[in-house]
Amino acid sequence: MNMEQYSILGRIGEGAHGIVFKAKHIETGETVALKKVALRRLEDGIPNQALREIKALQEIEDNQHVRSKACDAPVFSVQDLKPANLLISSSGHLKIADFGLARLFSEQGERLYSHQVATRWYRAPELLYGARKYDEGVDLWAVGCIFGELLNSSPLFPGENDIEQLCCVLRVLGTPTQDSWPEIVELPDYNKITFKENPAIPLEEIVPDTCPQAVHLLYKFLVYPSRQRCSARQALLHPYFFSSPLPAHHSELPIPQRGGRPPRQRLQAPPTDFSVDLPLQNSVVDPALLQGHASCL
């Protein structure tokens, strides 16, 4: 790719594997996200992270794939789900970006996975205990964390480091026991660290002023055993999505404004810039503006 075709408009974020810029394609005026990948080990050419990331993004281009990822049996593990990686397209579609860590499960299994996968706040407890064998449950945990963050406008488990991360989770879900989490004894870092025992805090207290269906759905995601977490398919059938406010068609959603196009009718002026450093409430709809439309707010 020739960088002269783009003018850089700003910096969107920075991950472990590269910096993402907001840029404009000079010829078409289209706004794009560019990821700059550092060639750390020059002697070995293009990094394998980059090759695999391009592979995942190419597969995503196929709309059918995207749809199956969103609603059907999970065929794909994203492993780095977090608010900063969720993009809303000009048509109001939610897209998941940053596939630097994505490997398709659709290949024959038996591959090595790193346990340092998800961004800390959204990392499933089995990963915090060093699990190397894991499944789509790590994504469903992250979905629970993101859902909770949307309800609260602040992260549920904002650990400053890996050990504090575990403390944050254990404080809310209660110290795991062999009853609440039988598989814990098989995890590599189990017994390496012990925490003071404490009971679980009801999620109603963690996400106060939230409608009961939302709390109930949150309970379905935030459980210790990965296999007990609600699947994406089941979650879509949860009463939360069938009670007011009902899910809107994507054409009715407030969308971020893109250069050159007249904004569609929306409830509020959308946020024009995103940054991982800004609080999430700058990037989501102000609940006050939705009062009267949404009974649970």
Binding site: F105, Q108, G109, E110, L112, Y113, E136
Partner: peptide, 17 residues
């Protein structure tokens, strides 16, 4: 030691894949 992921039955039993 290389620890390897298990085959995923969601994939292998789905004709769409």
């Amino acid at each position: 030691a290389a620890v390897r992921a298990q085959p995923d039955p969601n994939i292998l039993y789905d004709d769409r894949v």
